[in-house]
């Protein structure tokens, strides 16, 4: 698949994000227009505080834009209420965080089961899916372990698997390798490239890392609230 041949999954038109500060308003995103297509891996580069995480939050329906529109498969996310946006995330979005954020009170197996369970996948199918993911990660023997017993690399691999377990249309990764050493970063990146591809999932990763940018289908730069290379 080339970088332009997928259908548009998510489209941003003139998206603004302004945070009201105590003294004055802070504009983080200024009129962003972008389209992300099915199955592509996009890296968004930018300095700390450039608004990368804000952009991901808007794409995932975690936050709402101050202006403009974000459409997911034609549906305006900005017009959804809190409950509908939660259900949208639950069904269509997977998240990978810099600090893994696995649920500490659930085992590895249960962490992977979590989004399937939320989406009402029947227990037998969900278990088969988790076993398949664990086997692909080579962590089948760690299913009963709690996250704090795993290394950072193992935790992030599980986090990637959790993000794709329910086969979402979109995976949003916020500095997915920011907390890992070089070798582990490569392992996780390979997973992040390979796992969503099977389901034609779009991956958008906010990163500082040239390694991540290096393996993306498309690299965009966020600077001064605008996105360079936004047109695919």
């Amino acid at each position: 698949m080339s970088m332009t041949d997928g259908d548009p999954v998510i489209e941003l038109s003139d998206v603004h994000k302004i945070y009201p500060d105590a003294q004055r308003e802070r504009t983080v995103l200024r009129g962003i227009n972008a389209t992300f297509r099915r199955g592509e891996f996009v890296a968004i580069l930018g300095r700390s505080g450039s608004g990368k995480s804000t952009l991901l939050n808007l794409l995932g329906g975690i936050d709402l834009p101050s202006g403009g529109d974000i459409r997911f498969n034609g549906l305006s996310i900005a017009n959804l209420n809190e409950r509908r946006r939660t259900l949208f995330r639950r069904e269509h979005v997977g998240f990978v965080f810099q600090f893994f954020n696995l649920i500490p009170t659930l085992t590895v197996f249960e962490n992977l089961l979590f989004t399937l369970d939320l989406n009402g996948v029947d227990r037998a199918r969900a278990q088969r899916r988790v076993e398949e993911l664990l086997s692909r990660l080579g962590l089948s023997d760690r299913g009963d372990s709690f996250p704090d017993r795993l290394s950072g690399g193992e935790q992030q691999r599980i986090a990637v698997a959790r993000a794709v377990a329910h086969r979402p249309s979109l995976v949003l990764a916020d500095e997915p390798t920011g907390n890992l050493d070089r070798d582990t970063e490569r392992e996780v990146l390979a997973l992040l490239r390979e796992m969503p591809k099977r389901d034609d999932t779009t991956v958008i990763a906010a990163t500082h890392s040239p390694e991540v940018a290096g393996c993306a289908d498309r690299v965009m730069r966020l600077q001064d609230g605008t996105l360079d290379g936004a047109q695919s």
Binding site: G60, T86, R90, F95, I103, P104, T115, L118
Partner: peptide
């Protein structure tokens, strides 16, 4: 707080 925020991000409703 962080764990709850994670759950919210993953699609757990209010």
């Amino acid at each position: 707080h962080r764990q709850i925020a994670t759950l919210r991000t993953l699609g757990v409703g209010d």
